[in-house]
Design a protein around this nucleic acid. Sequence first.
DNA 1: CTCCATTCCTAGGGTTCCTAGGATACAACT
DNA 2: AGTTGTATCCTAGGAACCCTAGGAATGGAG
Lengths: 199, 199
Amino acid sequence: MARAGLTAERLIQAAAELADEIGFEQVTASALARRFDVKDASLYAHVKSVRELKAQVAALALAELADRVATALAGRAGKDALVAFANAYRDYAREHPGRYAAMRMDLAPDAAGADAARRHSAMTRALLRDYRLSEPDQTDAVRLLHSAFHGYANLEATGGMGHHPRSLDASWSRALDALDVALRNWPATDPAESARETD
Amino acid sequence: MARAGLTAERLIQAAAELADEIGFEQVTASALARRFDVKDASLYAHVKSVRELKAQVAALALAELADRVATALAGRAGKDALVAFANAYRDYAREHPGRYAAMRMDLAPDAAGADAARRHSAMTRALLRDYRLSEPDQTDAVRLLHSAFHGYANLEATGGMGHHPRSLDASWSRALDALDVALRNWPATDPAESARETD
DNA sequence: CTCCATTCCTAGGGTTCCTAGGATACAACT
DNA sequence: AGTTGTATCCTAGGAACCCTAGGAATGGAG
């Protein structure tokens, strides 16, 4: 009776693969145990709970995505950087639907997750450098870009776009054009609003 | 022994309220039955499955949101309309987190859901009328706006924005300014790209 | 070879989803 | 009122999942 050689890492990795194959919701202790030819109870030597395991899958996905974005961004600036970032994001979501679904669950804000979030934020600020926005505009722009990327990937993943004939790729490309326009012509702060802000 | 008076409608409604109170994930047949002082098995006379019930909650939410947006949009045009639409969307998400979470599950593309999706699309096109975009630009813009709204509400709901000091309300307001800029200066189709599209 | 920690298993309790079949309330009809 | 019928609700129970507790085997260190 050889041992299966379970490890927290290997479990998380396998759970991520399983999520991509059968869907994040369907990732279950029994299913994961089956994949290692092991009883489900055996997993609990390495993992506190299924919930925690899933959170760690989310953290893994965040980290992987940050890596991809980092390499995509290397040596690019301006709109090139914007497009590279956005495509890295979207491609990851499409190649790894289960991991991507993991990213968008109510995440326990643990150390790994918070760190990954910081990396994403830093990356986005790097991509924005060429647009020369100062605070707080930069933060606002980061949030808008995250929202747009996240939202698009999501709607695409859940089929929320309807089945319009217009190609999703083409729309995506135009959306990036439009965001580029918005960034290059970032609206000046409305003086009235600014005054209110510092009241 | 008085009867509880269960109905598909009342179950869906109660499930929606329950979702807002305890979270969409936590909506369970037993919890719902408890609320009606009934055994969980009794629900299955009115509902095919929990999964289907949840999908119907999603459809309900879609419909409610469409109503809100419709009234918010009445009598407005241009950026006013954009802001009204966006705020209706975001406010709904914040007032009804459970229903909103329901909207973003892998929805069975049933009749009700598809209908609601059409209403949303129509509404967005109405809001865009003043920006005078022609197809396929209009479709692209609809998709970008949906993505941005959806994404922002999502990130806000799951705490995905980090805890930066900058106010989420302020960022949201600036994001709308930026989207308004993008819509007013919608980029012309790149001739090379357009040629590729018709190849 | 013995000891030890780790790994994995068996056993079992609790929850949830769902089905099947029986009992009961309510309404309509005679 | 009494009867009949239908929809409503219950009891009973099977299957899957999550997790705990305690026992056995495995593989490495001394």
